[in-house]
Design a protein around this nucleic acid. Structure first.
Length: 606
DNA sequence: GCCA
DNA sequence: CAGTACG
DNA sequence: TGGCCGTTACTG
């Protein structure tokens, strides 16, 4: 058995191996010489399929050994052991690896360009769909096809995990192999046309947007929905935006004072939106670095990406154009450290920097394109890349066995969903939802258009709506479910991204009119006494939320969409009890209890 | 990659 | 549980 | 050097 699963504890790995051995498996150390005759190779994590391929580079797909090889998931092993359905003793082998890692430079995947994996590959995420996964391979295999089995598997897994193998945090490296992304950074083989397409599309997404005229907001606000969609609030907000526009135009002196020593906290710092970015020459370069890290599956990469994001934000609102680093060195912007400072220095002098001018690995634009599909993250995107898929069209070809329900739905509206949504249209949809909700549940129903809309954005990526009611109707099905059904019958909602029965958050696709574009929409139904916390959460921005939550954490409190909690007991960062809820119904009160000066939504664009 |  | 998503 | 938001919600 090749144990590759990230985070798998040595204990658990050891027990799996032992259990398999007890059932007659021959244990083979080392993976260089896999020569299965009639047996099975078990791969605990399908996510490491590529790694296995890397590990046996001398094979090619016509090698007859492929036909003898069966690759299964961890769930399969667990299930098989539980039901005593492992292949009969002596007919299968387990391969373990003792070495800490493979040498990436010498190992290449034999088919990283065209061929999908052999039919014996059983994707965990799709196993319930593949009722006949591999007709050409009659090798013994426990039934894992039925949905029930999969569920049972999951339960077993959980039970085993929590009760028996609750585990050391750090897996020993000789047992667990974590492959880094570096092994994927192959030199480009071919210049694929899809790469160019992806790059272009990315450029469009990151392109204009902030450039839309500020003056539009006034008129938008009058028919769009701000807090509760009521006119007074709308006008108040419009006036405020007006003031900000002027302040920004005048040079941005209209900021509220940040308490001393708090400038590093985004949740303390008003984000007075400045229409023009004076440092585009720098942020553009940093943006490409940020993007690269976002697409990586490596654990540290996402924090780097986050850090770049913060740095870019800071630079965007820096009041002067930076032509030499010294301008920054004396000011010291929080979030910009030595490394980025050095890069800025290089950018000032040469227009770019080393890290950004080295060309991206071949997989990067492909992964970037795949990740634009809702429900696809870096891990899935990279799997698909390794399976030979290169374009969204490739995915479409194989959609039935490749995509899960969410991804499948998202793909249907691929073109529309990658478009920005004009502010006006967000307001229109919110209004329609408000009318429907109030007809169903009465005029006391509150409806709020949230997200970047509430922060005053001229266009949005999706439509976020919060609903609440002081005395929710007691019905057989939840109010949210009722509302969704109603909106579907009206034709406003046209598809679901959350399939099952919705508890509190619905995600789906809507269309303001039959001929209009399809849009992403999120509906939140919240208890009335959590309205404040929910508004705070759903207003964002994400960076702002994270900052505020971290700040709460540091003060021994905890903040989430349900409320602000005090007296939280944590041991090594792990929360042991929930604490006492000290705020939740009122947004401003949460700021107050945290000791953060209140910031209106349009100042939360951290 | 930044920061306590 | 891992992966993805939400702000 | 370890942590980086949330014992967040939803899917499979």
């Amino acid at each position: 058995m090749v144990i590759l699963e990230k985070g798998m504890t040595p204990t658990r790995a050891q027990i799996l191996v032992k259990q398999c051995a007890q059932r007659g498996a021959r244990i083979v150390d080392g993976i260089e010489d896999i020569t299965p005759v009639q047996g099975t190779v078990l791969v605990t994590a399908l996510t490491k399929w590529e790694a296995l391929v890397d590990a046996i580079p001398k094979w090619n797909k016509s090698d007859e050994r492929w036909g003898k090889l069966q690759i299964v998931s961890l769930d399969w092993v667990q299930h098989a052991i539980q039901h005593d359905r492992l292949p009969s003793p002596g007919t299968f082998e387990l391969f373990r690896s003792k070495t800490a890692r493979f040498a990436p430079s010498t190992l290449r995947t034999p088919f990283n360009t065209v061929e999908p994996p052999p039919a014996s590959f059983i994707p965990k995420s799709n196993s319930s769909r593949n009722s006949k996964p591999s007709p050409s391979r009659p090798s013994a295999r426990p039934a894992v096809d039925a949905k029930n089995d999969v569920k049972i598997d999951a339960k077993i897994d959980t039970k085993v995990d929590t009760k028996i193998f609750r585990a050391p945090k750090k897996p020993a490296s000789h047992e667990v192999i974590v492959l880094s992304d570096e092994s994927d950074d192959d030199k480009p083989l071919t210049a694929s046309s899809s790469a160019a397409t992806a790059a272009t599309a990315t450029a469009l997404v990151h392109g204009p947007g902030a450039a839309v005229a500020f003056g539009d907001h006034g008129s938008d606000h009058s028919d769009a929905a701000a807090s509760d969609l009521d006119d007074e609030a709308v006008h108040h907000m419009a006036a405020r935006l007006e003031a900000h526009a002027q302040a920004a135009a005048a040079g941005g002196s209209g900021k509220t004072a940040v308490p001393p020593g708090m400038s590093a906290w985004h949740c303390f710092t008003p984000s007075s939106s400045r229409p023009s970015n004076l440092n585009k020459h720098i942020t553009d370069v940093l943006e490409t670095l940020k993007t690269r890290h976002e697409h990586s599956t490596e654990e540290t990469a996402k924090f780097r990406a986050l850090q770049y994001r913060k740095a870019i934000n800071a630079l965007k609102r820096f009041p002067e154009k930076i032509v030499k680093v010294e301008q920054l060195k004396k000011k010291h912007l929080p979030g910009i450290g030595d490394k980025i400072l050095a890069k800025i220095d290089q950018i000032c002098k040469t227009g770019t920097c080393d890290a950004a001018s080295t060309s991206a690995p071949e997989w990067e634009p492909v992964v970037a394109e795949f990740m634009k599909l809702h429900g696809v993250g870096p891990t899935t995107a990279k799997h698909w890349y390794h399976q030979g898929y290169r374009t969204v069209d490739d995915l479409r070809q194989d959609r039935l066995h490749l995509l899960n329900a969410t991804q499948h739905t998202a793909l249907k509206y691929w073109g529309d969903l990658n478009e920005r949504i004009p502010r006006l249209e967000v307001g229109q949809v919110a209004k329609l939802v408000q009318v429907a909700a109030q007809l169903l549940f009465g005029p006391e129903t509150s409806v709020f258009a949230m997200g970047s809309f509430r922060r005053g954005a001229a266009d949005c990526g999706d439509i976020d709506i919060i609903l609440s009611h002081p005395k929710p109707p007691k019905m057989a099905v939840s109010p949210l479910h009722t509302l969704v059904a109603q909106l579907k019958s009206q034709g406003l909602l046209i598809d679901d991204l959350t399939a099952g029965h919705v508890h509190e958050k619905y995600m789906g696709i809507c269309r303001v009119a039959p001929t209009a574009r399809a849009r992403r929409i999120d509906l939140l139904w919240v208890p009335h006494d959590e309205l404040g916390a929910s508004l705070l959460y759903f207003t964002g921005s994400d960076v702002f939320n994270r900052s505020m939550r971290l700040y709460a954490h540091r003060k021994g409190m905890s903040l989430n969409q349900h409320g602000l909690f005090a007296n939280v007991v944590r041991v090594k960062g792990q929360k042991l009890n929930e604490g006492t809820r000290i705020a939740g119904a009122d947004e401003a009160e949460i700021f107050e209890k945290l000791g953060i000066p209140y910031l209106p939504p349009e100042e939360r664009n951290a």
